[in-house]
Structures are given as structure tokens and as C-alpha cells.
């Protein structure tokens, strides 16, 4: 880990109750979207969070930006607990933690001009004079590589890539310390993805931002992040420096995930051995006992189905510096 932590998440849990009943609703079950997640993001660091759909990575993003309220755990941001903050304190923290969304078509209000969208944060916090706010809009547009004259236009007049730039500009309007980017490029065409990834990397350099970069695409996460955390069914199963995770993954799920990512090189593709996982991800409303991955784990099968995997939930343990893994048999893979 580099530098002092900006964000420290400890045992974060987000559970959504499933309610039933016509007259008096009662909770019959709950979806454990995030089930005891801990990680840190240092100042100026990019932590990548990867996992497949339903693994809870977006819920983590929503808990940290306080779109949803965590059910348990702490989110320590620069000395404040974001998990429980309310009122004035929450308002002040929101300025410093901003979000970039996946769908550039859904994340901009179609009835507001780009200028109004980018001005709104300053309006809310009453930053500067009216002229200064207008100047700030131009500045933000230039910062993300758009013509300041675009301020008068409406979102529907822009392409997906341009809209995503506007979304980035909005997130930067209040000079945040941490930007939570939830699948910021997955809705974009490949040639445009690179533009946005380069922009994000460049902004981090220039503004000293820290990102929590969430994506399902391992190649993208590995490219941009300093460290990568792999999530499965509401839990983090492995964290490591990005290069190390890629070269020597330890958790059987990480290994399978990495082997499944196609590489645009026919020679390599022919040589590669894929681990094809069986079946689908279990439902987070009814997770398996013991290790969350045990129903699909190829290593468990190889080791003759040890009982421990069915009964005991593995904790994150250190295997080398900065490399943690939650598996009972980290040395067997």
C-alpha cells in the first residue's frame, strides 16, 4: 500500500430485506448484496474492484457514496464515518466523494443543459459568484477535453463518449478527493473506451485523485488500477497489486476469472488453458454455507471436497506483501 489511507472500509455489509404480506409487511428473507467487505484506498491511489454481475461491487459503490445506507460496518473517510454520517456532516463528506456512472445516456438529466448540469454542484454548495460558476463550467469542460461552447447544449446532442466526459466533469466539479467510478467504460464502444480510460488516468495525475474503479472487465481494471480486489457473492476473495494478481493469482475464482478473459492474440489464445467454471453464481438471498465459492470451485473438487470448505467461511489472510486471499487452501492452487 502506498501512502496513508484516505478511505478505510471495514466489515461493510449491505442487506436488502425481501418483504411480504398484504396488510402488515414482514421481512421474510434478505439479500446479502455486500457481506462483510474490508479494504483501503490510499490518497491518490486507484483501487480496482472486479467481479461478475450480482457480486455486490455496485452496491459497494452505492454504500460509499451513501446512495444506500450500509446495514453494518464502518466506512472511515478521512476521520469521519461515512456509514453513519447524517445531515451537515454527510453533506460535507459528499462534496469529497463523487461518482461516475456506467450509462452515459441515463446519468445526465435530459432536460438540463450541460452548463446547468456542471453548475449545479456549485449552486448547491454556494461556491463563488455567478460569474465564477460560469467560468468554472468552461474550465471543467476544457479539463475533460470538450469545447466550452458545448455548455449551452443538451445531453442528447452528444455521443456516448462525450456524455461520459460530461459525467466525469460533473464528478470533478467540487474538487473531490475520491471518485467512485462504477463501470465507467463498459457502455462505450472500444475505441471510445480508450479515450475515457486515458482521461481518467490523466486526471488522476493532474489532480491527485484517488479512484475506486469498479468494472467487470479485468483487462480494463488491471490497466488502470494500482491494486485490484476481486469480489464474489458479496465478499472480497482476493486483493493484490494489479500486476501481481495477474501474474500469480491465488484464489481459485481469480484464477478461473483470469483464464476466461480473452486475449486479442491468436497465438496466445491457442496455447491458453481455460478453467471453465460450472454452473451459475448462487443467489445472494440464499448463499451457500461455508465458502461462498464452494459450489463452483474446481480446486475443492481437485482436493477431494474437503469438509472445511462447506462449513467454514475463509477469512482474508496475507500470502505476501499487500496480497491477501480468502481461501482455506491458498498454497494448493
Amino acid at each position: 500500500m502506498s501512502g496513508e489511507p484516505l478511505l478505510t472500509v471495514k466489515d461493510l455489509a449491505v442487506r436488502f430485506p425481501i418483504r411480504e404480506g398484504l396488510v402488515r409487511e414482514r421481512t421474510v428473507a434478505e439479500v446479502r448484496a455486500v457481506d462483510g467487505v474490508s479494504f483501503e484506498v490510499a490518497k491518490g491511489e486507484i483501487l480496482g474492484l472486479v467481479g461478475e454481475s450480482g457480486c455486490g461491487k455496485s452496491t459497494v459503490a452505492r454504500a460509499i457514496t451513501r446512495v444506500v445506507k450500509p446495514s453494518a460496518g464502518t466506512i472511515n473517510f478521512d476521520g469521519h464515518n461515512l456509514a453513519t454520517a447524517e445531515g451537515r456532516e454527510l453533506q460535507d463528506l459528499r462534496r469529497r466523494v463523487q461518482m461516475i456512472f456506467q450509462d452515459p445516456y441515463a446519468s445526465l438529466n435530459p432536460r438540463m443543459t450541460v452548463g446547468a448540469i456542471l453548475r449545479e454542484p456549485a449552486d448547491i454548495y454556494n461556491v463563488g459568484t455567478s460569474a465564477e460558476r460560469t467560468g468554472r463550467v468552461s474550465e471543467l469542460l476544457e479539463l475533460v477535453g470538450l469545447d466550452p461552447r458545448f455548455a449551452e447544449r443538451y445531453p442528447h446532442e452528444f455521443s456516448g463518449g462525450q456524455r461520459q466526459r460530461i459525467g466525469v466533469a460533473r464528478a470533478l466539479a467540487l474538487n473531490p478527493d475520491l471518485v467512485v467510478a462504477d463501470e465507467p467504460v463498459s457502455a462505450l464502444d472500444v475505441s471510445v473506451q480508450a479515450q475515457i480510460l486515458n482521461l481518467l488516468a490523466e486526471l488522476r495525475q493532474r489532480l491527485g485523485l484517488a479512484y475506486l474503479f469498479i468494472a467487470h472487465d479485468l483487462s480494463v481494471v488491471r490497466h488502470i488500477s494500482d491494486r485490484t480486489a476481486v469480489m464474489y457473492l458479496g465478499k472480497i476473495v482476493e486483493v493484490a497489486p494489479s500486476a501481481e494478481l495477474n501474474s500469480s493469482p491465488v484464489h481459485p475464482y481469480s484464477i478461473a476469472l483470469l483464464s476466461a478473459v480473452p486475449i486479442p492474440d491468436p497465438a496466445i489464445e491457442k496455447r491458453r488453458k481455460r478453467i471453465i467454471l460450472k454452473g451459475d453464481v448462487p443467489s445472494p438471498s440464499n448463499p451457500p454455507s461455508g465458502c461462498a465459492f464452494q459450489t463452483r470451485c474446481w480446486l475443492k473438487e481437485k482436493l477431494g471436497n474437503p469438509e472445511r470448505c462447506n462449513t467454514e467461511s475463509p477469512q482474508l489472510v496475507q500470502v505476501s506483501t499487500g496480497h491477501q486471499v480468502a481461501c482455506h487452501f491458498p498454497d494448493k492452487a
Binding site: 472500444v190 475505441s191 480508450a194 486515458n198 483487462s219 490497466h223 486475449i263 486479442p264 492474440d265
Partner: peptide
Amino acid sequence: GLLRSIPRLDGETGGKLVPI
């Protein structure tokens, strides 16, 4: 452009992509 604009799992980390 297509080949150079996508990050590769076996490529170098943090390098600059060449977007179109």
C-alpha cells in the same frame, strides 16, 4: 486503432492506450 485502444490482460499496466 482497435487493437491498440483496448487494454490487454497480458500487456503492461498503466501504459497509455492509443484511442481512436
